[in-house]
Write a protein that binds this DNA or RNA. Sequence first.
DNA 1: ATTATCTATAGATCTATAGATAATGC
DNA 2: ATTATCTATAGATCTATAGATAATGC
Lengths: 188, 188
Amino acid sequence: MKVSREQAELNRERVLDAAARLFRERGFPGLGVADLMKSAGLTHGACYGQFESKEDLMVQACQRGFEQTAEWMSGAGDRSPDPLKALISKYLSPAHRDAQGGGCIAAALVTEATREGPDVQHAFTEGVETLVDTLAEFVQNGSKRERRLQAMAVFASMMGALMLARAVDDETMSKDFLRAVKSELLES
Amino acid sequence: MKVSREQAELNRERVLDAAARLFRERGFPGLGVADLMKSAGLTHGACYGQFESKEDLMVQACQRGFEQTAEWMSGAGDRSPDPLKALISKYLSPAHRDAQGGGCIAAALVTEATREGPDVQHAFTEGVETLVDTLAEFVQNGSKRERRLQAMAVFASMMGALMLARAVDDETMSKDFLRAVKSELLES
DNA sequence: ATTATCTATAGATCTATAGATAATGC
DNA sequence: ATTATCTATAGATCTATAGATAATGC
């Protein structure tokens, strides 16, 4: 039953990765501790050896998810003459829309984060800050503050479009949301 | 215990109004049937005389909420020389941010709607369609399709900014999200 | 007689903990 | 000896239903 300290750490990592993915797919209240631990190949009792509470788990899963999203974002822009446009195209693609568990964690959990306690909300805030920083590096013109505000506007617009594209059950309308915001952002 | 048919209908309306408000505030899984009925002054057993299931209730609460939001939107634009700009300013105000229960239902429940069954998702889709129609009437230039795409882009951008402004626990950043998208939308 | 609502409860599910188990690490 | 994980379970909560109750509507 007991495993090596090294294996225990690997297990904890596996739980966190599963949590970061499954919370995005099902939301915070939609994923129970037992289900999550089972996905990582453990029983639910083991959760409380690794984490203080479900809230602690949500906080750490947010941090993990934002790290992944930030990496995904900077990766999308790299090796492109206009990294911001490259990222916008990737963010607003049907592929991203259909891969909620591996996509932008902000788009997957904004409203749910608002309904959780201050610790989750704070982890979420810090994550958003990181994403805005990442995006701001891709903005070409303007003062530092202008670039940051520009990044915030681009991020909010993309996120809104992605979420609406996911929420509607009409494929045409869904693609139109992606297209509409994409052409709006790529023009300016 | 029994009330008049007329009173029963009033009760049902009161339940629906409470549901439309409380689901926006707490999310679908966050509001239980017992709590909701108590808010309307009834016991939870009465719910199943008025609605088939919690899902049925969610569907009807969505319809009610979207009606209210559509009215709120067209009201915001009326009696203004540029109704679209008037609406954008109202939508992206701190007052709207702080009044989630009475504000845009799409911004309050997008992600949660995605996690519910097809009936809720369809009610949500129809509601979004109504809001886009309302917004499209305020767009001045372009063909019908261009005006509609423009309305979709404006809606997605506003919604994303409002949700991020609600999610972060830093007042400066929150206001910056509103400001950033507002100036972006009002310029063009 | 009909029926809107209430009371009581079934059955499922969820977070969290206590104590047992068995392999690690000294 | 320590401890990561498991088993079992407590206690709370949630949706839904059955049957009782009492006022309406004929």
